[in-house]
């Protein structure tokens, strides 16, 4: 599958076939998730309506971690096997991951103030999430700091891989340290501990976020591939005129 897709032209054709469906599914899932989460899911008996913040906070945080893991795996594939789409995929994922990391941080703050009585604490979960955000920013900055794509992709890939240690730290921070943040209540070995009336709309929202990620990732990868082709053609033209 991965080797078949190594041909960018074939990848672009496949992306074009998938994108209309992905786009439609994303919009539908977002509408369903929003209406369910804001309109029909019950308010929590302790947290009241602030629990609705969870419907954006949790999917955003999941995507922030998924995005980084995706970036790290793609960087590894790019470094080791020189797969031609790997660094394109990693580069395309970074702004999405950074965006969702920011959403997770700010919505967490907006949820923390009424429920914990504070906007921010320097506990393990919040701090490691902030580190994740800075890793994203550093990765994006590194790409734009180095002109030559070949060198930029290598340097960025190494940063992505080094930073990957932080992903399990984010995930398990709530178990390893005593934090204000609650422990996992969905992705647990013994099954979710959230009531189904809230769990289902949460999952619909998570699906919507994930579909969105794939859709916009494909747009970004297409743009990058076409941009590289433009650069190659421009350089070719310049070389011929010289």
């Amino acid at each position: 599958m991965l080797t078949r897709l190594a041909n960018p032209t074939r990848f672009l054709r496949l992306a074009d076939r998938l994108l209309p469906w992905l786009g439609a599914a994303t919009v539908l899932a977002f509408i369903a998730g929003l209406v369910w989460g804001l309109g029909f899911a019950p308010a929590d008996y302790q947290q009241g309506d602030t629990v609705r913040i969870m419907f954006v906070h949790v999917p955003a945080a999941w995507l922030a971690m998924f995005g980084y893991s995706f970036m790290a795996v793609a960087s590894f594939v790019g470094l080791v096997w020189k797969h031609p789409l790997a660094d394109v995929a990693a580069k395309a994922a970074a702004p999405l991951g950074a965006g969702f990391c920011l959403v997770a941080l700010v919505t967490g703050s907006l949820w923390g103030q009424p429920m914990w009585g504070t906007w921010w604490v320097w506990d393990a979960r919040l701090t490691s999430m902030l580190v994740l955000f800075f890793l994203y920013v550093g990765y994006i900055a590194l790409w734009s700091a180095i002109d030559e794509p070949e060198r930029a992709s290598k340097a960025a890939a190494i940063l992505a891989l080094v930073g990957a240690v932080n992903v399990p730290i984010v995930k398990f921070s709530v178990d390893w340290w005593s934090t204000l943040h609650q422990p996992s209540s969905v992705m647990r070995l013994d099954g979710p501990t959230i009531d189904p009336s809230i769990l289902w709309p949460l999952l619909v929202n998570a699906i919507a976020f994930q579909l969105y990620f794939v859709t916009v990732l494909l747009w970004r990868m297409k743009a990058e591939l076409i941009g590289r082709r433009v650069r190659a053609l421009t350089l070719g033209l310049a070389a011929r005129e010289a």
Binding site: L38, D49, G99, F100, V103, T107, W219, R220, A223, I226
Partner: peptide
């Protein structure tokens, strides 16, 4: 607290989609 959370999510989601679309159109 609830509405700003949804508003920010909306801004980020729509903003990234528009920026990515624009970059794609420009390259094309």
């Amino acid at each position: 607290f609830v509405w700003p959370s949804f508003a920010l999510t909306f801004v980020v989601v729509i903003g990234l989609a528009i920026a990515s679309r624009r970059a794609l159109r420009k390259a094309e």
